[in-house]
Simulated scan of single mutants.
Amino acid sequence: MIDGLVDHLEGTLGAIAAGWRTDPDGTPAPFQVVEFETGRIDDAVIYSTLGLSEYVLESPTADGHSHLELIMIAPEGLRGSALPFQLLDIGRLVVERRELPGLGTIIRNNRTLADLSTMDALYVGRPLYFTPEFATFSNGDRAVTIDWLLPVSQQEAAFVDANGWQAFEKLMYEREDLDPIDYNRASLLP
């Protein structure tokens, strides 16, 4: 584990309350997913990969390599659901590809998400609920990017594909009534 990473995550997200290292069928993962205690965001549960950052990923950064952890924030009603296993699946995909997903990457064909939400895909974005400093952790030896997987509709995913992540985030910011944690919200686009 990267020195200081757990303290960084717990300092913002709360104490780790539970963890998973295997799928429901017992298949082990090369990292874990953790759940944080309630209370940091009202009526929400927060999950994070932990150990995904042990893998060096190809990236367009200056040194060509990067490290990543992913978070998901969901309504409290989805605590105890299959979301940790969704995060395990996505993390495995990242490890297999050895490529850092860029901001605005759309992850489609999420069977687990389809069972829990009206949303069709996941969007790789910045963790908006937290200070900008949370999104990047560095202990002096290694830097880790922390990205948020937000549920998006099919129409929103198509908008990102056509217009880019900056246009989509601008659209989200313009909607004061948007709750990105609501897994059953109405799409921003018809």
Rank of each mutant, 00 (worst) to 15 (best):
F31K: 03
S53T: 07
E37M: 10
Q32T: 15
Q86S: 12
L128K: 13
L57Y: 01
M119T: 05
S81I: 04
S81K: 08
T112M: 06
Y55A: 13
S48M: 05
G39Y: 04
F134A: 04
D42F: 13
I107T: 09
E58W: 08
I106E: 03
T27P: 03
T131E: 13
T105F: 06
V34S: 01
A114Q: 14
N139T: 09
A143Y: 09
T118Q: 11
R21C: 08
D141P: 01
E54S: 12
F36P: 01
A44F: 04
I16P: 00
S59M: 04
T27N: 14
D141E: 15
N110H: 07
Y55V: 13
I90F: 09
P28R: 10
L88Y: 01
Y123M: 10
L116N: 09
D120S: 13
F134L: 01
G91L: 01
L87T: 06
L50Q: 10
D42G: 12
R79D: 11
E54R: 13
P30D: 12
R142N: 11
P24A: 06
P101F: 00
E133M: 07
V45G: 13
L52N: 03
S117N: 05
P30I: 05
R97P: 02
L68I: 06
R40G: 07
A62M: 11
S53I: 05
S48H: 01
Y47G: 03
Q86K: 08
Q32S: 15
R79N: 11
R142Y: 08
L70A: 05
M119G: 04
G80M: 08
L70S: 05
G102A: 15
L113S: 02
A62H: 14
I16D: 00
L78K: 06
L57I: 04
I71H: 00
P24M: 06
